[in-house]
């Protein structure tokens, strides 16, 4: 019996939802397990770094890495997986775009550590103790990885072959990706494994979107009795759908929640946040500066709204480590 292709799942700065999404394959996971050897999956299986190090370079068919790169350990592991794998897939929004952890790029490393260890409401730390990078116990050195100043998407650290978008990717897209990998029927390197058209194309509420939205204010979803039959933008709710790659089949929108942009932009757009801003701002009803300001002031967190997943790869990205 020929050797089965080797596959790894690895996680970096992420919430664990991507791991869940693998399990969401449900009974299809049995086919996957039957077809491949999983040689690394920290959340589910007990393989160590040294096991991977012991493998020959390029002996793994594919590594699916989720999460952004925030620490030196994640960078080291990503580079190791890259060396040992023929293909690397950036799995999920954080690996693809930088993700929610990437919003931390609005702050400096020191601001973050100070808040977490000294200022956050749930912290009691009068001595202002901070974790040490290196601690000696019983003559042994225990080290912590370096916490970088900048959160990066996976392809800002290692070469990435494909991207599986989503927070998390849907089982359907994962299934399609695995089928393509196992059949060897692969698209061009660098492809995002989802349709290259905005979500409106497949949105169930598409027909009810008016041509001119005439925004007078932007409403947050919890403040509106949402009409499930009507386009959310028409109800004054910021929906990232027009600027977001489709492929999720509108799961959030079907649940009366607006698209928050987790699939990232289409291949033609360099900056998803700038694009949706440009689109929405051009449909603000007020034409005078005061009125425009008043309308825009109803968005309490513009970066978190328009760059929720993509800040590290946007044109606003920070370059200093």
């Amino acid at each position: 019996m020929p050797e089965k292709p080797k596959v790894t799942f690895y996680w970096c700065a992420s919430c664990g939802g991507c791991e869940e999404s693998v399990v969401d394959l449900a009974e299809n996971i049995l086919d996957v397990v039957a077809a491949v050897d999983i040689v690394m999956w920290p959340v589910a299986m007990d393989f160590k770094k040294k096991d991977v190090e012991a493998m020959e370079d390029k002996s793994i068919l594919v590594s699916m890495i989720n999460g952004a790169i925030r620490t030196s350990e994640q960078e080291e592991m990503a580079k190791l997986m890259r060396r040992k794998s023929q293909l690397v897939i950036a799995y999920g929004s954080c690996a693809h775009l930088g993700g929610i952890p990437g919003l931390a790029n609005q702050f400096q490393r020191e601001e973050i550590l100070q808040y977490i260890f000294e200022e956050s409401p749930s912290t009691v730390n009068p001595q202002k103790t901070r974790p040490e990078r290196k601690v000696m116990t019983n003559g042994n050195a225990v080290t912590l990885p370096n916490f970088f100043n900048v959160v990066r998407a996976l392809d800002q650290v290692i070469d990435v072959d494909y991207y599986l978008p989503g927070c998390p990717p849907t089982p359907k897209l994962l299934k399609q990706a695995l089928d393509a990998l196992l059949s060897g029927n692969l698209p061009e390197k660098g492809t995002v494994l989802a349709p290259d058209i905005a979500l409106c194309d497949e949105c169930p509420k598409k027909d009810t979107k008016p041509s001119d939205l005439k925004f007078t204010e932007f409403k947050r979803p919890h403040l509106v009795q949402i009409d499930s039959a009507t386009c959310l933008l028409a109800q004054g709710i910021v929906c990232m759908g027009p600027a977001t790659r489709g492929g999720c089949e509108g799961v959030c929108i079907s649940g009366n929640m607006p698209c928050t942009g987790c699939f990232g932009p289409t291949s033609r757009v360099k900056d998803q946040g700038a694009k949706i801003l440009s689109a929405l701002a051009s449909q603000v009803e007020a034409k005078d500066e005061k009125g425009i300001d008043a309308t825009l002031a109803t968005i309490p967190d513009p970066v978190g709204t328009f760059y929720r997943y993509g800040l590290p790869i946007s044109l606003l990205r920070r370059k200093n480590f």
Partner: peptide, 26 residues
């Protein structure tokens, strides 16, 4: 055409009324 999601954003902002929507193709 293949890239257009039919989101209608462009329709009303054209100062020259040059943009229309093909309702059949959306």
């Amino acid at each position: 055409q293949d890239d257009c999601s039919g989101c209608r954003t462009c329709l009303t902002i054209c100062p020259y009324n040059a943009i229309s929507r093909d309702e059949a193709k959306q």
